[in-house]
């Protein structure tokens, strides 16, 4: 593995369109659920252990080389909210564009050809990690970190939080991120033998509910 490739893939400046998304943070702020650093931390911890774990499992499984189209279907059955499925595919399409130039390869081409409207973002992330020579655990790390990094960055803009405080939240979540990535990679190892049902499918009701509410809002700062 190349440690630099992982840094590049997980870098918020990687041109995959993630900066336009708050991962449910804007909706949480709008509904009054998050208004300070403590709320940010509780939000991120909850998202990491639910949607983050599910995304990390899918990304790790895609990085093992398991059929990405079957995993894309598994992502659909794990994403009940239509707005969140749309967002995941839109982010997947943007990541695919960047990935095919950065780490060109037949597996990315194959997925892009079969999902021209975009595959779910964690699947594209896993196939990209594979193209970059990264391991399933690396892919899970990137997905887990992304599940909290996006909301933390967005909270700084939405609440005018101290960016140092927001970053310290992410530092405090490092152990949780590692644990989630390890659990996701462990499940991904079993997919070849036991099928996609062994992958985490943890969901959070409020992320689904507020995700749909946010999509219906005429004025918003972030796309999700």
């Amino acid at each position: 593995m190349s440690r630099t490739a992982l840094l590049l893939l997980a870098d918020g400046r990687f041109p995959a369109g993630g900066h336009a998304h708050s991962g449910g943070m804007e909706a949480a702020v709008a509904s009054g659920c998050v208004h300070d650093t403590a709320g940010l931390e509780a939000f991120c911890r909850g998202r990491l252990h639910t949607a983050g774990l599910t995304a990390a499992g899918l990304a790790a499984a895609a990085a093992t080389g398991h059929d990405p189209l079957a995993l894309d279907e598994a992502a659909d059955t794990r994403t009940p909210a239509p707005a969140l499925r749309r967002i995941a595919r839109s982010l997947g399409r943007q990541l695919m564009r960047a990935a095919r130039v950065t780490w060109p390869g037949a597996e990315l081409d194959h997925l892009a050809r079969h999902r021209p409207q975009g595959a779910h973002q964690p699947i594209v992330l896993g196939v990209t990690a594979r193209a970059a020579g990264l391991s399933p655990l690396d892919a899970a790390h990137a997905a887990a970190y992304e599940s909290v990094g996006g909301p933390a960055t967005a909270a700084v803009r939405l609440l005018s939080l101290d960016p140092f405080e927001a970053t310290s939240v992410l530092a405090r979540l490092a152990g949780d991120c590692d644990a989630v990535a390890a659990a996701a990679a462990e499940a991904a190892e079993r997919v070849a033998a036991e099928g996609v049902t062994v992958l985490p499918a943890v969901s959070a009701p409020l992320l689904d509910i507020t995700g749909e509410q946010h999509a219906a809002r005429p004025v918003r700062l972030f796309a999700s």
Binding site: V34, A42, C44, R45, G46, L48, T50, D176, L206, L207
Partner: peptide, 9 residues
């Protein structure tokens, strides 16, 4: 973790 927090319930 954070099951009653702002992302979950």
């Amino acid at each position: 973790p954070a099951w009653d927090g702002p992302a979950v319930l």
